[in-house]
Amino acid sequence: MKTVQLKFFARLREQLGIAEIAIPADQAPNLDSLMNWLQTQHPHWREALEQPLTRAVNEEVVNDNVDLNPGDQVALFPPVTGG
């Protein structure tokens, strides 16, 4: 099955209790549909997913609803705090 890989980091990873999941690519043709699929499949994640999160596709931050392809790596994470 073709999938899109989704990674979670930091506080969000702890809140969801999981670091990574695979999503059927046909359920996630773009970033917004991926988010909708997540909320539908995991309604108890809603609150955690509604906090301010950065979205990255293939290790680049994206601010818009970009199209996704099988094999893409998506990441969701809270604002960064390094340095």
């Binding site: 980091f9 930091a10 960064v80 390094g82 340095g83």
Partner: peptide
Amino acid sequence: IMDHLKTEATFWKK
């Protein structure tokens, strides 16, 4: 570099 590192580099402190 430092200012952008603080706001862009994917690190999280606990």
